[in-house]
Design a binder for these strands. Structure first.
Lengths: 112, 112
DNA sequence: TAAACTACTGTGCTTGTCAAAGTAATTTAC
DNA sequence: GTAAATTACTTTGACAAGCACAGTAGTTTA
């Protein structure tokens, strides 16, 4: 089963915040976490991921710092801010609510 | 609670198909059905609605015909096609699946 | 030493949605 | 009787998220 891109749209930032809320991470690892969390059902395009990082940093939901790798390629790490944690909590609430509304909209009966 | 536009994105066509699956309808009435189905939590922008009608008609999921109103403004009615009914069923399956995947992505724990 | 993997960035395009404005008829309120 | 509200459909222009594609660069494995 393929998940249409538009069904994920609007969740990208929340997905990243959820992952960073469990510990600092960097692009490639976040990418792998998404694969793992979705049971290999979903992959986020690299460009989308890094675009989201920049958006979230601009918003103040995350902060970045370069790791000092003694080996391997350089990595930019991201850390969630307390504002980011607030936004994550809000987004989770919104999702619980939206889930019901959407279910009604796409399969509910119309009462005249 | 406000539902962000991006959470509905990707569902617009399915919402319309669900409504038309319960009987032919026209723009304004579909708009009201959406308000009713969402318990006044959501409203679809007119331009978005009519854009979706045109998209769905081009795809062959719906068909249109002008009503012969003896009174009131002219109305363009829409009817779901059997292809549209197939697509509606597929979209409902996809939603059931995506709901779980999304929930995992935004609130699941990462196992190392 | 070539291939595969890790890691990040930039450009340009597509698509869905929306705000705003327009057209036009009908119905309700003053 | 006319102004306001409602019904009903359309067009235009803009925006933001996401993506494909391409590029840079270091590391590990075959």
């Amino acid at each position: 089963m393929e998940i249409s891109k538009d069904l994920i749209r609007g969740h990208t930032d929340t997905i990243i915040l959820n992952i960073l809320n469990q510990g600092d991470s960097y692009g490639y690892q976040v990418s792998k976490s998404i694969r793992q969390l979705s049971d290999h059902q979903y992959e986020l395009n690299e460009a989308t991921l890094y675009t989201a990082f920049r958006r979230l940093e601009k918003l103040g939901d995350i902060e970045s710092y370069w790791g000092d790798e003694t080996q391997g390629a350089r990595r930019k790490y991201y850390r969630i801010t307390s504002q980011g944690q607030d936004h994550l909590a809000t987004a989770l609430d919104e999702w619980r609510f939206a889930k019901k509304v959407i279910s009604n909209l796409i399969s509910g009966r119309i009462e005249l």
